[in-house]
Computed example of a mutant assay.
Amino acid sequence: MKLYMGFDDTDVAGAEIGTGRLVRMFERKLPDGARLWGALRHQLLIDPRIPFTSHNSPACAVVEIDDEALIPALTARAIAHIAEFASDGSDPGLCVARETDDLSEIVEFGLSCTHEIETQDHARAVAARAGVTLLGLGGTNDGIIGALAAVGLSAYGWSGRFLEYGRLRRLPDPISVAALAEAGIEAVAIDKKAQALDPRALIHTGGWLSPRLWGGRAVAPIEEKEDGRLIALGKRPRDAEVAD
């Protein structure tokens, strides 16, 4: 089964380790019987009334586990990981939920966070009704809002960008449509032709492939240029490195 582990507000301006990178690093802390299915970055509302470091972007580690008995140990490891790597002055939060929990209200909360200002009180009430773990781990504890939202948006299945997914960071550039599919990532043309892509066609990633979570799967949006080249949409490598 999948376990959603949402993290937020673990850094401050100028920190070397942002929330996205902290979540990627958590893969090294997983015990036997637990595997990282993917790490997702989500975008919440940008508003001057909301305190955030740079992008208001929580992250979620989606972990496959063989036995639910691993959940307490995973939660303890996540708490220790945040304590080890979160920046002084940050306001970290952690949310842990099983895919088998009733996450419907958490999904609604996550969607609301993309266009409305939410509160800690509302986050705690939603988590309590769903019976999921939601922990403030320092400072103002404001990170619980984004941590809960990250879980909701990941469970929603139609939001977020993969920071980690299988061999994502080791895939060649260019890469064929077929090879990308073998890596578990579906290439989808989103230009005006929206045509089915030839499995032999090469996709140019610019050294940074940025799949989205669409329909609960890893999907790479692809655009065909006037010269016929297929280009994967995403961030420039340096920008991605700094943010994630």
Rank of each mutant, 00 (worst) to 15 (best):
G110L: 00
E105V: 11
D101P: 02
T119C: 06
L111M: 14
P92L: 13
D121W: 03
D102F: 00
I117H: 00
T119G: 05
E108C: 13
L103F: 04
G93H: 03
E118F: 00
L111W: 04
D91I: 09
G93N: 07
G89I: 05
E116R: 13
A130C: 12
A123T: 06
A130P: 01
D101T: 05
E108F: 05
D101G: 02
A128H: 11
D91P: 10
R124H: 10
L94E: 14
H115C: 12
S104L: 12
T114D: 00
E108M: 12
A130R: 05
H115P: 04
G93W: 04
V126E: 12
A97H: 07
T114C: 03
T114V: 03
A128K: 13
R129N: 11
R98E: 13
A130E: 12
L103H: 08
P92Y: 08
A97R: 08
A130W: 05
V107H: 01
I106H: 05
A125G: 00
A97D: 09
V107C: 06
G89W: 11
T114M: 05
I117S: 05
S112C: 14
L103C: 11
S104N: 10
S104I: 02
S104A: 15
E118D: 04
A97K: 09
H115E: 15
V126R: 08
V96M: 09
R98N: 07
T114K: 10
S90D: 09
L94C: 05
C113W: 03
L111F: 03
T119H: 01
H122L: 15
R129M: 10
I117T: 12
G93C: 02
D121N: 11
V96A: 06
P92H: 07
E105S: 15
A125F: 00
G89S: 03
A125K: 06
I106R: 00
R124D: 09
A123P: 12
Q120Y: 00
V107N: 06
E99Q: 13
A127L: 04
Q120R: 06
S112H: 11
G89H: 02
S112L: 14
T114N: 03
S112G: 14
R98W: 02
D88Y: 06
D121R: 11
D91W: 04
E116D: 14
V107T: 07
E116C: 12
D121P: 09
E118I: 01
V126A: 09
P92A: 12
A123H: 02
S104M: 08
A125V: 04
L94I: 04
A127E: 09
E99I: 03
T100S: 14
E118N: 10
S112R: 15
A130H: 05
C113Y: 03
G89A: 02
D88K: 02
G89Y: 08
S90I: 12
G110A: 01
T119P: 06
E105C: 08
A127F: 05
C113K: 03
V96E: 11
S104V: 03
E108T: 12
E105D: 15
A123Y: 01
D91T: 10
R129Q: 13
S112Q: 15
T119F: 02
S104G: 06
F109N: 08
A123L: 04
T119V: 10
